Simulated scan of single mutants.
Amino acid sequence: MFSDLLDLVLPASCALCHRPDGPLCPGCRAAVEECLHPSPRVALPSPCPPGMPQCWVSGEASGALRAVVTAYKDEQRRDLARPLSAWLAPALGAATGSNAGARRALRGRGLVVVPVPGSPRARRRRGDVPLRPLVTSAAEGLAGRALVADVLAPTRITRDQSALDAAERALNLAGAMVVRERHRRVVEGAVCVVVDDLITTGATLAEASRALRDAGAAEVLAAAIGATRRRLAVDGQTDGPPLERVWRQV
């Protein structure tokens, strides 16, 4: 309530340009929308880590879109939750709508939507788990029964991923997640969708999927707001120089 009253007195600034027109001014919102695809697309990192699930994304993880995600997570701009969840929702909808098992799960026992767990270090620094409300809000648009569940837990401390290459990230995360014992019944035999904000090498999604499959998940899909373009290919195919991966409209 205090925050709402404060916003009436002191208008929020734009998270990117800091002008008094927040959470995103029209110019910065337009810059973000240039990073979004006309419709969600399948993203496959190159090289693709073993066990990487099919992942749908709404846009390219660069420029203004990446800056908005960073502001939301690390600069306490939680007022960006609404636009970010709105950009995540199409990818989540495409991931479930394109898969027969997911559609059946939504009509039956329910689809299990799994946010990628943040590291304990990041949780202490931020004071919360910023991905969770985005996933919860985006899942509300799914047609059917969807359970957003924090079923994954870290098994050990991992290194900061930001300075690691693809091989180092995969090694850093190998065996780093497990399904919580009390949630194994939820996962066993279920169709699960792992959700992250942005993907770069796919190592996080691959490890999360491995943990879910080890716990008996029948199928694992993935969704994210955006993926790094320079590391993307589709169906293992590339077009052009190694750093110029292409998207296939699906």
Rank of each mutant, 00 (worst) to 15 (best):
P83M: 04
R29E: 13
V220C: 03
A89Y: 04
S98H: 15
G144P: 06
V113G: 01
A105Q: 08
S3N: 07
D196F: 02
A170T: 15
V113Q: 03
V114G: 00
A208H: 05
V220N: 04
L6Q: 04
Q76I: 02
L8N: 04
A224Q: 06
Q54M: 10
M52V: 06
C35S: 12
T158M: 14
Q237R: 08
D196G: 03
T70N: 03
I225H: 03
A61L: 07
A146R: 01
R132D: 08
R104M: 10
G226K: 07
G175I: 11
V42L: 09
S13T: 11
A31R: 12
A31K: 07
L134R: 02
V9N: 01
L173S: 13
D239A: 06
L80V: 05
R66C: 03
C55G: 02
P90F: 11
R159V: 13
L142H: 05
L134F: 03
R169M: 11
R230I: 00
V194Y: 00
V191L: 06
G141C: 02
R123G: 09
V178W: 12
Y72V: 02
I225G: 01
D197R: 09
L232A: 07
A211T: 01
L164F: 10
V194F: 00
L212Y: 05
A223V: 04
V220K: 03
Q249P: 08
T238H: 10
A170D: 11
P133M: 03
L10V: 14
L152W: 00
R19L: 07
R77E: 01
R19W: 00
R169N: 08
S62E: 14
S13F: 00
Y72G: 02
D74G: 05
E188K: 14
A122S: 13
G93K: 14
A223D: 08
A12K: 13
A138T: 01
A174L: 12
A206G: 10
P130A: 02
T201W: 13
S62F: 11
T136K: 02
W87G: 04
A218Q: 10
Q76F: 12
E207R: 11
G216M: 05
P49A: 06
H183W: 12
E188A: 15
P90H: 13
G108E: 15
A163V: 15
R180K: 15
E75I: 09
V112N: 06
Y72W: 00
V178K: 15
A86W: 15
A105M: 07
N99P: 05
V151S: 10
P130C: 01
R103F: 07
P38E: 13
R109S: 15
R66W: 03
V57C: 12
R125S: 08
G240T: 04
E188L: 13
R180D: 07
L164K: 14
I199A: 14
P117R: 12
G108N: 13
Q54R: 10
D150F: 07
R41K: 10
A143F: 13
R103S: 00
R156Y: 12
G175V: 10
G175M: 13
E219L: 09
R132M: 01
P241I: 03
T96H: 08
F2K: 13
R125A: 14
R159G: 15
A167H: 15
A149M: 06
R182I: 14
L88V: 01
L6F: 04
